[in-house]
Amino acid sequence: MSTAPTPPLALRGNPRLGLALGSLALLVALAALLLMQPQLAERAAASDFQARLLAPGAEHWFGTDVLGRDLLARTLQGLALSLWVGAAAALLGTLIALSLAALASLDRRLDAMVGLLVDSVLGLPHLILLILIAFALGGGTQAVIIAVALTHWPSLTRVLRAELLQLQQADYVRLSRRFGKSRRYVVWHHLLPALLPHCLVGGLLLFPHAILHEAALTFLGFGLSPGQPAIGVLLAESMRYLSAGYWWLGVFPGLGLLLLVLAFDRLGNALRRLLTPREAQQ
């Protein structure tokens, strides 16, 4: 408690440094992944029967699979695919959540209906609903995106709905109307700007969920077609060989998925803290 030296004010000791560097690294990695995708696709599809089921080594860092395809290329290709699917599903899910929250704010009966919808979807087991929708839509990339989006809006809807309800009761919003501002003005200048950060963070946190569920769905055979090198497909294939000791077939794709999900989860949480006034300064 006695006299402490003046704190460092520059880069050193800035808690946002980690966040900034982390986001930058993630962004560079993702950009590289997407840029390399054409070459990756080629490598991922190239089979070499001379090099079947090779253990990780200098030439094939992650080893090869039963058809002699390079597992590193296939894992990266799978992650790139997951990224697209996850991004599309998260975006769609956020849009659904925002529209439903807006609908709920219009009047009390609509609010009750949206609430019921949220509760019933939350009450159903996630994965089963996911499988049903994907199955009904006939599988494939589009079906997975729609299925994941359709099962991932409820929690965000709940957040946005509560936030909107609170905002509408806020003194400054009520006063704005008494200053003669129109309903439309209030929505555009008070409500939407307050909701956008929630949408951004909510969408970003939806993303890892979407990726995980895409992989799960594909793993179970209801998602992307087995011909696509999706992480779920890789993991499903690996199951057949795991007991024979070919551990790398499952470990590397699984690890890649875990890292991607963790990275986005951390980023989303850091962003949420940044946008919470009370926690933003720490």
């Binding site: 408690m1 006695s2 006299t3 402490a4 003046t6 704190p7 300064q281 720490q282």
Partner: peptide, 20 residues
């Protein structure tokens, strides 16, 4: 105090320094 606070001076309880 929140984590971004920097404190100087001293707090004492019954003569003994009251640190974190």
């Amino acid at each position: 105090l929140p984590g971004n606070a920097r404190l100087r001076g001293s707090l004492r309880l019954d003569g003994e320094l009251l640190d974190a």
